[in-house]
């Protein structure tokens, strides 16, 4: 579990990126916080640079959409999901439980 920042540090519609074993992006989707791998599953875009729409993020390069709740892509050119990481908020702080590759079945 990593303390990332205060909830006020990520306004609605914005994101922060931090480095764990891989870069991870944390989004504030209208008050809900989500953490996913920052690197797009298509090529090398940083999803924290992308555009948030509801709980979907649009990749800033080729516009693939990912559901932040599940990591699933909903349109081309992405075909593989991105990893999601559980987030909890405690006393105004955002914590991310970073899932490593090997923990994914």
């Amino acid at each position: 579990m990593l303390a990332i920042c205060r909830i006020d540090d990520i306004p609605a519609g914005e994101s922060v990126r931090f480095d764990a074993h891989v870069p991870i992006a944390v989004f504030n989707a209208d008050g809900e916080f989500y953490a996913v791998d920052d690197t797009c599953s298509h090529q090398d875009a940083s999803l924290s640079d992308g555009f948030l729409e509801g709980c979907f993020v649009e990749c800033p390069l080729h516009a693939a959409l990912f559901d932040l709740r599940t990591g699933m892509p909903s349109c081309l050119p992405a075909k593989r999901p991105i990893r999601t990481h559980p987030v909890s908020v405690h006393e105004g702080w955002i914590y991310v439980h970073v899932i490593r590759q090997e923990e994914v079945a």
């Binding site: 875009a45 940083s46 640079d49 992308g50 555009f51 649009e58 800033p60 390069l61």
Partner: peptide, 10 residues
Amino acid sequence: HPRAFARARR
């Protein structure tokens, strides 16, 4: 500058 572009395109 993909970040600025994503927002500007919208």
